[in-house]
Simulated scan of single mutants.
Amino acid sequence: MKKVIVACGSGVATSQTVASKVNRLLKEKGVDAVVEAVDLKSVDRHLVDACAYITITKVSKEYDVPVINGIAFLTGMNQNKELERLIEAINQAK
């Protein structure tokens, strides 16, 4: 199953909220993927076998997977755009 990582500072509150919402949205769209919440310190380790990274914080590093704006899922602003980017990343992953 394809994996998506969501990260915030502690990996508890905000990332869990976004992961839960994204899991629900993907299920509604019939997309088969699992969304996991992690803390920022362990992002690199979890991205090894992930197809996308949803970030709650500003990213200054380059990653080998598409980086999706997690704030969109918190606020609802541009949520559909970011969800479509995420679905495209999942569908293009091997």
Rank of each mutant, 00 (worst) to 15 (best):
T57F: 04
T17G: 08
V35I: 07
A33G: 07
G70M: 02
V22W: 03
K27H: 10
V12N: 00
V65N: 02
Q92R: 10
K21E: 13
N78Q: 10
A33N: 08
H46W: 15
V67T: 13
R24M: 11
K58V: 12
A50R: 06
G9I: 07
L26G: 04
I87D: 15
E84R: 13
V4M: 04
E82G: 09
V38R: 04
S42N: 15
V31L: 14
Y53D: 02
G30A: 14
R24E: 15
K3E: 06
V12I: 14
N69V: 12
G9M: 13
K2H: 10
I56D: 08
T55G: 15
T14K: 01
V48Y: 10
V22I: 07
V6N: 03
M77C: 06
Q16H: 13
I90V: 10
L40T: 14
V34A: 08
E82Q: 14
D32R: 04
A19D: 04
S60Q: 11
I68K: 01
R45H: 11
I68F: 06
E28V: 02
R85C: 14
A19F: 07
I5E: 01
E88D: 11
S15L: 05
A52G: 04
V12C: 04
H46A: 06
Q92T: 06
D64V: 11
E28W: 13
N23E: 14
S15I: 01
P66R: 11
V67A: 14
G70I: 05
C51I: 09
G11H: 04
I90S: 00
S42F: 08
L26E: 05
K41E: 15
T57W: 02
N23L: 02
A50C: 09
G9P: 09
N23Y: 05
T75C: 14
F73T: 00
A19V: 03
G70H: 02
G30W: 12
V6C: 03
T75N: 07
V38T: 12
I71M: 13
C8P: 01
D64Y: 04
A37Q: 03
K29I: 06
N23G: 03
Y63N: 08
N69L: 09
N80G: 11
N78E: 12
Y63K: 01
E36Q: 07
D49F: 13
L26I: 09
K27G: 13
N23I: 01
G70N: 03
V22H: 09
S20H: 10
E84V: 11
K81I: 12
S20Y: 09
N91K: 13
A50V: 08
A33I: 09
K41Y: 11
I71P: 00
A13H: 13
E84T: 15
A33C: 07
V6H: 03
V4H: 00
Q79H: 05
Y53E: 04
